[in-house]
């Protein structure tokens, strides 16, 4: 839901019309997935619009501001690669999330393809685009460790997922003539992190904007 919101901020601002369509498409898929998940847990609007920042459990990666197009694409690359691996594994199991994951994996494979193709174009494009993309790759790297912290109730081989993720990302970055960052992927800056309701500073403002109207009319239906 949070990443969908961030992608929604691109509407009307994309570098080409085709990307208006593509980014909105991905945002809609993600919102659809979020609605199914939230509805499983309770009332989707109550959960989306009436929780405070500290009660949100999203990864810090997905709440990162859009930045430039490269920043958005790299965030998408990191997340959709992760989501694809996770959903593939969930879909293969017989847990409660298997049906949802089975549907999502098809959408996510499109998202991953989109992000990979753009990473290649931007990395192996012009000097400017390579520099911007490398900057995004480096800047977002620190938020990627959190994805592989075990989540209660999900029976997943997290280290194996992480290895597969690193391999796939490294392959794409190298083909895009980019360098795989050497910096740490977890650390004090993320202590506790999104899963524990500890978020980065921009997240509160994002929620303020997202929730304002709903909260101004308590009990109203829309």
């Amino acid at each position: 839901m949070v990443l969908s919101h961030r992608l929604g901020e691109w509407a009307g601002n994309a570098p080409v019309l085709e990307e208006e369509v593509a980014l909105a498409n991905i945002a809609l898929d993600l919102l659809g997935q979020a609605r199914v998940l939230l509805s499983t847990a309770g009332d989707e609007d109550e959960l989306a619009f009436l929780r405070e920042e500290r009660a949100f459990r999203n990864l810090q990666l997905v709440e990162q501001p859009n930045g430039d197009f490269a920043h958005t694409i790299v965030r998408q690359l990191y997340f959709s690669t992760y989501q694809h691996l996770l959903h593939t594994e969930l879909a293969a199991g017989d847990g409660p999330f298997a049906p949802l994951a089975g549907k999502a994996v098809k959408e996510v494979s499109y998202h991953r393809d989109h992000a990979e193709q753009w990473t290649l174009r931007l990395g192996d494009g012009t000097d400017t685009s390579r520099a911007r993309t490398q900057r995004a790759v480096d800047a977002l790297w620190r938020y990627t460790g959190e994805m592989f912290q075990p989540v209660e109730g999900l029976d997943i081989d997290w280290p194996a997922l992480e290895t597969a993720w690193l391999e796939r990302i490294a392959r794409v970055l190298l083909r895009a003539t980019l360098t795989v960052p050497e910096g740490p992927r977890v650390g004090a800056w993320a202590a506790g992190a999104g899963r524990q309701g500890l978020h980065t500073e921009s997240f509160g403002r994002m929620l303020a904007e997202m929730q304002h109207l709903h909260r101004s009319h308590p009990g109203a239906t829309w």
């Binding site: 019309l17 369509v21 809609l28 919102l31």
Partner: peptide, 26 residues
């Protein structure tokens, strides 16, 4: 209004609409 839509259903409808408009432009 996409980022301020008051329910997730309305937000999805509005996103889809704006996406359609880009498609119409194309």
């Amino acid at each position: 209004w996409i980022t301020r839509a008051p329910s997730l259903r309305r937000k999805a409808i509005l996103m889809a609409k704006v996406q359609d408009e880009a498609g119409h432009g194309l």
